[in-house]
Design a protein around this nucleic acid. Structure first.
Ligand code: SF4
Ligand code: SF4
Lengths: 145, 145
DNA sequence: TCGCGGTACGACCGAATTAGTCTTATATCT
DNA sequence: AGATATAAGACTAATTCGGTCGTACCGCGA
């Protein structure tokens, strides 16, 4: 339906973990995975995708691991999610293989596109540092109805 | 990832179609399905779910069909989507069968809950009449970071 | 220099979800 | 009565997702 994939979820956990252990040692996939009870293999895959998008940087070799590549305030939830699951598109209009058959007649396409924009803007408003803070100042997001 | 289910998509199409043919005849599932090139059976199922949530009302018998049960301005996208796919929850924390194993250690649960709230608020801000209008006045949605 | 502890990457499998179909029952108009 | 609808649930097919494995590569330190 409308759910974050578990991989993206794990990605956010990992990035937040790295943000918290900033300036300390580089965290290995195993370390993070064990901390939250997630399969090491899976966490490794997630971190690899994040590394490919330059959200985290990897350090090979013994006592290696991952480090945040940017400031926590410069990493948005959208960055993490789309790094792992690809672009966020709420409709199937233009997807991987073949677009929707109803596309030409469809009358909700354009309205939904605007809803999609709004969700994108929500997701790109909240950053990792937002997710670490305690105080929660409301922010206004513009929504094109 | 983060996609609307096709059924929900079809639901929005159907509701918008009914909104456009308001005060005319009741539209049958077949009529709507053929208009947009969707399977009749599937469209029927979607409309049944909408009827169960009293978003549309059904008229049995020959020359029967479906009618909008409320004003288009009183039907939100969230209404339609959750009528078809169930409650909108971006995380798997509390879902159908068994919650997430990382739940106790998880540090992104609360932030994501707030993101979820924001998405809910976006979805409940846009109504069917919004989706039919041409002009698109921006609306501000409050987002708890 | 060799081995251990780590990342990189893609192929792979099984489980879960989703899309779509069929069948039977029921209601209502003509 | 007969035609045309909805109602509902069981069922199957298609697709996605979660998770695993194997193998290659990298680099530090004993
Ligand atoms: S075209 Fe209309 S129906 Fe097809 S995916 Fe886009 S919005 Fe949904
Ligand atoms: S608990 Fe944390 S990890 Fe588990 S689903 Fe909720 S947010 Fe995702």
């Amino acid at each position: 339906m409308f759910k974050l994939s578990k991989k993206a979820d794990y990605g956010l956990i990992a990035v937040k973990h790295l943000a918290m252990h900033r300036d300390e040692h580089a965290c290995s996939a195993t370390e993070i995975a064990e901390e939250y009870g997630i399969s090491t293999m899976l966490m490794a895959k997630v971190l690899q995708k994040l590394a490919r998008q330059r959200i985290v940087s990897a350090k090979h070799g013994a006592s290696g691991g991952y480090l945040l590549a940017k400031e926590p305030s410069q990493i948005t939830a959208l960055d993490v999610i789309s790094a792992i699951d690809g672009p966020v598109l709420i409709t199937s209009c233009v997807t991987n293989h073949g677009n929707c058959g109803a596309a030409d007649k469809c009358s909700v396409r354009e309205p939904l596109r605007r809803v999609n924009e709004s969700i994108l803007s929500v997701l790109s408003t909240v950053t990792i540092s937002h997710m670490s803070e305690e105080q929660h100042e409301p922010v206004l997001v513009e929504l094109q109805t």
